[in-house]
């Protein structure tokens, strides 16, 4: 009962902030509502007893990536965009895309409805500590993809530094 209440609270918060992200004209405010949406998602993770995922979500997305977003938005003066009338209103395309997406999600839920609702929740005490679990799968079953991803990130980082250096 309490779990459900907490879930609906965070879900409502996430959806509300997601809507505000796209409707706000002010870029900083949009970014802040995106942070709220990410934090609400983190809350849902916590409600599912996935503490490690919750912490990673907060540290990486809310505390890392979004801080850089906000930082760049604050550096670049976006006041001009605030006062301009948007003329490229592409309602129609957006409507089709979101309708397709909604249909996709609905279909996914409809297909997996039975399995989705019959998986019994594991009691919190019987679970292994989250962090060990994640580490085990990451470095045991998915070692190669993990290393490939890290090399990819390293390449991107070095590339960004090289490109920035050229200008100076």
């Amino acid at each position: 009962m309490l779990d459900q209440g907490v879930f609906y609270f965070f879900a409502a918060l996430a959806i509300l902030s997601a809507i505000l992200v796209v409707t706000r004209r002010n870029a900083v405010q949009s970014a802040i509502f995106l942070v709220t949406a990410l934090l609400a998602t983190a809350g849902i993770f916590l409600n599912l007893n996935a503490e490690f995922l919750f912490i990673v979500q907060v540290i990486l997305y809310a505390g890392g990536i979004m801080v850089l977003f906000v930082f760049v938005i604050m550096l670049v003066n976006l006041d001009v965009a605030l006062h301009q009338v948007q003329f490229n209103r592409q309602w129609f395309v957006a409507l089709i895309v979101s309708a397709v997406l909604a249909a996709q999600v609905a279909a996914a839920i409809a297909v997996s409805r039975r399995t989705l609702y019959t998986v019994p929740a594991a009691p919190a005490e019987s679970l292994e500590p989250n962090t060990e679990r994640v580490a085990f799968y990451l470095f045991h079953n998915y070692m190669l993809p993990f290393e490939i991803a890290s090399i990819l990130l390293l390449v991107a980082m070095v590339g960004a530094v090289v490109m920035a250096k050229k200008r100076v």
């Binding site: 802040i32 490690f52 906000v70 930082f71 604050m74």
Partner: peptide
């Protein structure tokens, strides 16, 4: 007394940047 206490404190400090950044901007 949570199992990821140390990480939780770091998570909170990492979100604390917003107070400073937003206070300055707004």
């Amino acid at each position: 007394n949570i199992s990821v206490g140390l990480l939780a404190i770091f998570a909170i400090t990492s979100v604390g940047v917003y107070g400073v950044a937003l206070g300055g901007w707004s």
